[in-house]
Amino acid sequence: MSEGDGEATGLVKKFLFVNRKAPYGTIYALEALEVVLISAAFDQDVSLAFLDDGVYQLVSANNPAGIGMKNFSPTYRALEDYDVTKLYVERESLAERGVSEDALIVPVTVVGRAEMGKVMAAQDVVLSF
């Protein structure tokens, strides 16, 4: 498995996955989640940012059965098992869309826009899809 090569370097970097796209309409959210799980296997310092339409990814009521797609929302619940616990959701993005924190599928850290900017600035590697 290639995963071992990364661990062998012993380097731990701060990875941020920036999620700004809604789920289901395009594949970006699902395939982003797949990278998140792999990066956790590399023992990196992983954070996820949800802002703009990305906050819709976490809505617990999402149910794509009727459009024939797999519901990947439960995967967000599994992140904790991979020690991925830094999920930052932007307060303004939630408010603009009328989404409350209670509607989200996992516990998150809600941050204001300025603080989200600081989270972004503190990273070594920023991945967006």
Partner: peptide
Amino acid sequence: HDAVQSWL
């Protein structure tokens, strides 16, 4: 710059 963020 120490890192790059692409706003996609």
